[in-house]
């Protein structure tokens, strides 16, 4: 069957198996930042934004997102043009193995889109359920607060947030 959706700003039609999970549809199409940590909706590694809302793509059928707007980390930035959240994660030392990082960045993005000036408690709530076994989360929380500040500065300078 076919899945048509806007993925990272590009309208795409993917050939997917009838009962394919969204995680597999995306990974097979080359969006390998979507990581598989459990396939039971418990780890957050496979998070994507669907119409701006973080969703575990391992518990969603590809067919359920027909016509929707999907964002993966590839859509936020590249190593040459990194999103402030990426830079903040790197600068804070929050990326150890990095397997949890794309999912966390997307949930953080959804938070900052809603709330550009979050408290540490807001960040903890937004990242809860993104399991990371390498870090103690301290640096991720720091990074999201730092990215929020960077984005606010940029917005104040008229740059606008991506």
């Amino acid at each position: 069957m076919k899945l048509t959706a806007t993925i990272n700003g590009v309208r795409r039609t993917l050939e997917v198996a009838p009962r394919a999970l969204l995680i597999d549809a995306l990974r097979d199409a080359g969006y390998t930042s979507v990581k598989r940590g459990c396939e039971t909706g418990d780890c957050g590694a496979c998070t994507v934004l669907v119409d701006g809302v973080p969703l575990a793509s391992c518990v969603v059928f590809a067919g359920q997102v027909e016509g929707r707007v999907l964002t993966t980390v590839e859509g936020l930035g590249t190593p040459d043009r990194p999103h402030p959240l990426m830079e903040a994660m790197v600068d804070a030392g929050a990326v150890q193995c990095g397997f949890c990082t794309p999912g966390m960045i997307l949930s953080a993005k959804a938070l900052l889109d809603e709330n550009p000036d979050p408290t540490a408690a807001d960040v903890k709530d937004a990242l809860d359920g993104h399991l990371c076994r390498c870090t103690g989360y301290v640096k991720q929380i720091e990074a999201v607060l730092d990215a929020a500040a960077r984005l606010r500065t940029r917005a104040a300078a008229g740059g606008g947030a991506r």
């Binding site: 990974r27 097979d28 080359g30 969006y31 390998t32 930042s33 990581k35 598989r36 993966t72 980390v73 590839e74 936020l76 930035g77 590249t78 190593p79 990194p82 959240l85 990426m86 830079e87 994660m89 790197v90 600068d91 030392g93 990326v95 193995c97 990095g98 397997f99 990082t101 794309p102 960045i105």
Partner: peptide, 23 residues
Amino acid sequence: TSPRKVDALGMAAGAAAYVDDVA
């Protein structure tokens, strides 16, 4: 000193770097 971890930016940007990221 604490320079950036050499591989971190790629991973944060979702680089296809892990075992299962190649087809």
